[in-house]
Nucleic acid binder design. Structure first.
Length: 841
RNA sequence: GCCGGGAUGGCGGAACGGUAGACGCAGUAGAUUCAAAAUCUACCGGGGAGACCCGUGCGGGUUCGAAUCCCGCUCCCGGCACCA
């Protein structure tokens, strides 16, 4: 073959125009917009529906690489499903309420400037929408929404009222997490290691009346992930968070006749309960305490109240507590045991009081040793020497045989003892005698949704002097968040000083009422938004029930792992509540969940302005084009892993895209071969890629999909010649390559598709199917093993029988050397892939 | 402590139980160039001149054959954690 590089006489290879993504991409984005190919017909039921949902972003004002990493692979998966013949709905909107915009307004107020969160948020939504267009994604912008608009949040209020009617929303005074920086209470889910999830401030415990959703009513149902294709770790995290414990509730009676209820997972150790412990906040502490101990107990309770949650739960801390002076009766045998107050017992879990069994619970053991309380073993381990309460150095929590336990002596017991074990039998025994009952307890608390903030959905409740707490009438919704507000430099919610907003008429008696000034947790907004996408303009109800029936649950939901508990738990709860309000038949919102990892800076650290390792997607697009950014983010590694940004890595992908352009557009070198073997090789390469890319995209394995496309490009480049390009098989291979590229690099594929004159948009083509015939090889590689070692490889016709295979193996000089030493034991034929000839000496 | 997920070249990572390291990055050599960039070609786990040998966190096992399956560890990441 003449090569202009080495042969000066050879004709110079003509080059087509260069690949300039910056020119191609805006042109196609505008064309797709004009043609409306991303506007979906939600009523079209001629094709199977696929609801692809990606977690809607908070309008921070600027897209960062994380958005591109989250959205563009999801877009590739959605485009792939559309080409496979599905009617794919892939909407995008904005989670628009929240503290950052309000904090910006407060900051501005401190400087005497005027910034309003509503204006700021709407501007940011507009600029981010423009930025989103540059991704070349197939978002259907005709169905977008922003949660800060009254048309959206009025339905938050509507749901709240319906939930209130059903007793699923309620107000109660309880100990809550107060974030002193953001000046609001937070849900348990928003407190991480004792600090506010957003502000990082140490949260304080405050007793305040607040609105809650009764998520605990669904605790058991939330533990059931049946039928869901979700990552194991997300299911585990939610299961841990809900924290189900089985046990019994046992009531102890004080000498003064008050009942103290305790929860235990080990009722079989009841005979070893040598004291009771109340949490400092337990309501009975004051009434139980005897006069002689009052001062000491009061001091202890006050000191405990001053401790931050993190100090109090510190593991290193030694257990402290005080005796109340009171005694209670152990119900199983009438023994009198002392009642203590200690802050290692949490008022928020179980009943806020525990029966302490120091011999078999490490915490109780440590407390008993500190204060000289009795340690009485009631479970004897089978294989260890007898436990003695006086000499034990730690609690024994394992299995064994019950002793000192009245009628149960000799019963095998422990966590693993099963239905005939002590735990189950003692519960039955307690129930028969009315001394206690089976009880399941959860770590999960009800969802606290009140926020003492401005930029959120007003809670539609009123306080009337005559009627008390009164819900707003549905027909008066929305309770509009007033925009004529002044932001305090102190950070206090302006609603607390807005007389017009607070002034209301009581729907019950017609008198004057005061409006609730707390707003809802913004996780409320994201708990049902995918229903609203289906009919964002609907004004006579929250959702279009026919579309809900057809389109939900969401088929594939994508987003960050940081929402594993928060948003995803609330969304599941909300769907179940909506089901019970007859708004949907489904019990689960999202059938398949896939989480992307996080893109880190070049240094492997989280991207931040302070570190100076932020990569700006706008710069990347200007430099390399959107397709290169998309393809690189997909190629970087498994999507759920994320990883550091590699500036040289994207160059490799850019090279690949230029090679694709050259492969399709540049003229081929003259001559070459287009014989049957060459054509078969070309078709095999193309159809192998079809098979692999199809499988990869189906399984969200974008990195190997891109690698497969690179392999195909390499193979085609190697084979490309004047003779082959003139063959129909070349045209077919180019078409397949472009079809496979379409979800990943939509602009490049579309441009080349048109340049080749293949017809209307590549994105409206059917996804190619594999021609199995093209995959069949005329020969097969034969690996020859002797005594477990690979000793050679021979190539035989794919239809060779065992005898011919053996003959072929023997024709390999190297194999024969080893074969001579042994005898043939057997041949193992792996159909379609490999043939191994095994010889044992 | 309990639960979940991992560990493969210099790096990111591939491998239905079937020749480990696909694809890419970085690197080496060469072509092109006055030179460089870009591009192209070849090489690119370790040892050995070679035949070969050794290699997927560690120790066993199953199998003709194990990164992959089983048993026992080590370390790393994530979640929960004084939750009775």
């Amino acid at each position: 073959m003449a090569d202009p590089a080495t042969d000066p006489g050879a004709p110079t290879r003509q080059r087509a125009e260069p690949y300039v993504p910056q020119e191609i991409e805006p042109r196609w984005q505008a064309a797709w917009d004009r043609s409306g190919q991303h506007r979906i017909d939600l009523e079209d039921d001629s094709r199977p529906k696929r609801y692809f949902l990606t977690m809607f972003p908070y309008p921070s004002g600027n897209l960062h690489v994380g958005h591109w990493y989250a959205e563009t692979p999801a877009d590739a998966a959605a485009r792939f499903q559309r080409m496979r013949g599905a009617n794919v709905f892939f909407p995008m909107g904005f989670d628009a309420f929240g503290l950052p915009a309000e904090n910006a307004a407060i900051q501005a107020a401190r400087k005497g400037e005027d910034v309003h969160p509503a204006r700021l948020t709407r501007e940011r939504i507009a600029s981010m929408t423009t930025q989103f267009q540059r991704m070349g994604a197939m978002f259907d912008w005709s169905k977008t929404l922003a949660t800060c608009e009254p048309e959206y949040y009025r339905w938050n209020q509507w749901f709240f009222l319906r939930a209130y009617q059903r007793g699923l929303a309620y107000r109660k005074e309880s100990y809550v997490n107060w974030d002193p920086v953001d000046q609001t209470v937070l849900a348990n889910e928003q407190v991480v290691e004792g600090r506010g999830e957003r502000s990082g401030a140490l949260v304080e415990r405050r007793l305040m009346p607040q609105w809650h959703f009764r998520i605990t009513a669904y605790a058991d149902e939330l533990l059931d992930f049946g039928g869901l294709d979700w990552p194991e770790r997300v299911k585990t995290m939610q299961t841990n968070w809900i924290g189900r414990s089985e046990g019994a509730e046992v009531a102890f009676t004080t000498d003064a006749g008050q009942e103290i209820r305790t929860f235990t997972t080990r009722p079989d150790t009841l005979w070893g309960a040598t004291f009771l412990v109340l949490a400092p906040e337990h309501p009975l502490v004051a009434t139980v305490t005897t006069d002689g101990h009052r001062a000491e107990v009061q001091a202890y309770v006050e000191a405990a109240g001053r401790l931050s949650e993190i100090d109090r739960q510190s593991e290193a801390r030694e257990k402290t507590g005080v005796f109340t002076g009171a005694y209670a009766t152990r119900p199983v045998d009438g023994a009198r045991i002392p009642i203590w107050v200690a802050d290692y017992v949490l008022v928020t879990y179980g009943s806020g009081a525990v029966m302490a069994v120091p011999a078999h619970d490490q915490r109780d053991f440590e407390f008993a040793r500190s204060y000289g309380l009795d340690v009485v073993p009631v479970v004897q381990p089978a294989d260890v020497e007898r436990l003695d309460g006086a000499t034990m150095t730690e609690a024994y929590a394992g299995d064994g045989v019950m002793t000192n336990s009245g009628p149960f002596d000799g019963t095998p017991t422990g966590k693993d003892a099963g239905p005939d074990g002590g735990v189950a039998r003692v519960i039955m025994w307690l129930e028969e005698r009315g001394l206690g009952e089976r009880r399941v307890t959860y770590r999960l608390r009800d969802w606290l949704i009140s926020r003492q903030r401005y930029w959120g959905t007003p809670i539609p409740m009123l306080y009337c002097d005559a009627c008390g707490i009164v819900p707003e009438r549905e027909e008066n919704l929305p309770v509009v968040l007033p925009e004529d507000v002044a932001f305090m430099p102190t950070g206090e919610s302006p609603l607390q000083h807005h007389a017009d907003f607070q002034h209301a008429t009581c729907p019950s008696c017609g008198g004057t009422a005061r409006r609730e000034t707390d707003t809802m947790d913004t996780f409320m907004d994201s708990s049902w938004y995918w229903f609203r996408y289906l009919a964002p303009d609907k004004s006579d109800g929250p959702v279009d029930s026919a579309r809900v029936a057809r389109w939900t649950p969401v088929d594939t939901y994508t987003g960050g792992i940081e929402h594993a508990i928060l948003h995803l738990l609330y969304a599941r709860f909300f769907t179940k509540m909506m089901r019970d309000l007859d708004l949907t038949d489904a019990s689960e919102p999202f059938l398949r969940l896939r989480n992307q990892g996080m893109i880190l800076g070049e240094d492997g650290e989280k991207m931040s302005k302070r570190r100076g390792n932020v990569v700006d997607p706008d710069d990347l697009v200007a430099r390399y084009g959107a397709d290169a950014v998309r393809a690189y983010l997909m190629f970087i590694g498994p999507w759920d892993q994320g990883g550091p940004w590699n500036p040289q890595g994207i160059e490799g992908v850019v090279r690949f895209l230029h090679r694709v352009w050259a492969l399709v557009e540049d003229p081929a070198p003259e001559g070459g071969s287009a014989d049957d073997a060459t054509v078969a090789e070309l078709r095999r390469a193309a159809h192998t890629a079809v098979a692999e890319v199809t499988d990869d995209l189906d399984r969200f394995r974008f990195n190997t999909a891109v690698a497969e496309l690179m392999t195909l490009q390499n193979a085609m480049m190697k084979l490309k010649s004047g003779a082959l390009v003139a063959n129909d098989a070349w045209e077919e291979a180019v078409q397949l390559l472009l079809l496979l590229l379409a979800p990943i690099t939509p602009h490049l594929a579309e441009e080349l598709w048109h340049r080749r004159g293949f017809g209307e948009s590549v994105h409206l083509q059917a996804w190619p199917s594999v021609d199995e015939g093209a995959l069949v090889r005329s020969t097969i590689d034969l690996v020859v093993q002797v005594n477990g070692k690979v000793r050679g490889k021979v190539t035989v016709p794919s239809d060779a029988d065992d005898a011919a295979v053996l003959e072929a193996a023997k024709s390999d000089a190297n194999v024969v050397r080893y074969l001579a030493a042994g005898t043939l034991k057997r041949e193992i034929v792996v159909p379609g892939k490999l043939v191994n000839l095994v010889v044992v000496g």
